[in-house]
Design a binder for these strands. Sequence first.
DNA 1: CAGTGGTCTAGACCACACC
DNA 2: GTGTGGTCTAGACCACTGT
Lengths: 252, 252
Amino acid sequence: MPEQNAGLDTLPRFVVDRSSPVPLYFQVAQHLEDSINSGALPTGTLLQNEVDLAASLGLSRPTMRRAMQHLVDKGLVVRRRGIGTRVVHPKLRRPLELTSLYDDLARAGREPTTRVLSFEHVEAGAGVAENLGVAEGSTVVEVVRLRSAGGSPIAKMTNYLPESIVSFTEDDLATHGLYELVRQQGVALHSATQTLGARTATAAEARLLEEPRGAALVTATRTTYDDHGTAVEFGTHIYASSRYTFEINLLT
Amino acid sequence: MPEQNAGLDTLPRFVVDRSSPVPLYFQVAQHLEDSINSGALPTGTLLQNEVDLAASLGLSRPTMRRAMQHLVDKGLVVRRRGIGTRVVHPKLRRPLELTSLYDDLARAGREPTTRVLSFEHVEAGAGVAENLGVAEGSTVVEVVRLRSAGGSPIAKMTNYLPESIVSFTEDDLATHGLYELVRQQGVALHSATQTLGARTATAAEARLLEEPRGAALVTATRTTYDDHGTAVEFGTHIYASSRYTFEINLLT
DNA sequence: CAGTGGTCTAGACCACACC
DNA sequence: GTGTGGTCTAGACCACTGT
C-alpha cells in the first residue's frame, strides 16, 4: 500500500490529441506540469508507475518515459529505481532559461517600462570588440536603456550588438525585451555567460537610479551566443540593489 | 558534398564495451565529448548522421540518439532537422553545476584556505527556520567561515544545517567544501535556489574582508534541497566584490 | 518476492532543409 | 528528390528497492 498515490484521479480524464502537431510526450508532460503547479499533484506525491500511465493514456512506454524525463529535466519530479516518481518542492521551477529583465518583471506583474537613453552606431572599443568577437573599430550598435518598474528605476543597461542583426527600431525597444526582438529576427539563441559582481555607484549613477550616494550596485556583464558560437550581444548592466536581486535555480 | 565532415576517422576506431556496467549511450557520449575537448572534432564540425554512426558502432538508432541528446544537454553540439549535428563553441562548457566557492577557487588554482570562525549548535530563528523548513526554535548547526585565496579574504559564509545531517567536524571544514562533506554522508543533492544582490559593508565586515569602509559587497543567500525536497542547507554569504565575481552559464 | 525505473532493440512514419 | 533529425511503437532484459 503506497503512502501516497495519484494520477488515478486526474490523469485518466486527460486524453492526448493525436491530430495535434504538438508531440505526444510534450502534451503529457505539459498536463502533468499543470497538475503539479495547480496543486492537484502536491509535493511528495508518488505518481503512478510509467507502465500503467502509458497504458491508461494509450501511449507506448518510451513516449511516457520521455514525458517523465522532461519533468525531471525541469526539476519538478525525482525518479528512483525501485521506488517511483515523486513530486518535489514546487518552489523550484524554471531552472534554466535565458530570460531578460523585461520578461522577469512582466512575469512578476511589476509593469516594466523602458526608456531608451541612446541608440546609435559606434565604433567598437577593445573590450566590446573582444567580447563580441568583432574587429576593433568596426561598427556596432550601442543601446542604453533605463528600465523601471512601478515608477522606480531598476537598472541601466548598456548593450552592444553587431550591426548586421539589428533591424528593430528605438520604439520597439521601449515595449519589448532585447532577446525577444533578436529572436524574432530568426536568430537562434544558444547560450550565454554572465558575470555578476558589485560596486558602489558614481554620483551620476546614483542620481539615475534614485539611490543614495555611494549605494552598492549589482553589476552584470553578459555575452550571448547563437547556434554557431557567434556572439550575438554583449552587455554591461547595473542594478539598483535595493529594488532588484538575481534569482538563480540550479540543478545538480 | 558537405563542407566539413567528421566521425569517419575517429569514431570507427572506437568500440563500445558491452560487458561494462556503463550504459552504451554514455560510453558513446563520453567518447564524443573527449573528441570534442581534445580538438579532434573542432568547432563547426558537422558530425556524421546518427543512422550511420549507430550502424558503424553496432548500436540501435535510439541509443545513438540518446548519446547525441546527452551532448545537446551539455551544450556541446547543436542539432538541426534537415541539416545535421554541429559542434559549437568549445568555450561554453559546464553549463550549470552546483559548485561551491571552495571548488571554484581550487579549480582556478587559487589555493583556497578556510578559517572556521564558529561552529555551534543554535536555536533556529524565524528566517532560518522558514528557509530550512524546520520548526522555529529547533536546534540547527551554524557554521561561519572565512574563505581566503592567495592570502586575501574572499568571503564570509554563514551556513545553517539540520543537526541530523552533520557528522563532520570543524577540522573537516577547513580542508573541504561544505557540499563535498554533505555528499559524502550519502545525501543526494538535488537543486538549489540562490539569490544574489549587493549592499555596502558594515565597519566590521569591511575589516574582516580587508575592504575599504563602505565598500560594495556581493550578497548571496542559498537554499539547497535533496531529492525529497527537504532543505539540506541554508546560507547567507558576503563576498569581497573586488576579488570575486559570479560566473554563470545559461543554456536556452 | 513483486514492483519500480533504466537500458536497449528494430523497425516505422513524419517534418524540415537543401538541391 | 534526397538526406537529416524528430517522433513513436511494442516489445525485451536488467538493476535496484522494499516486503
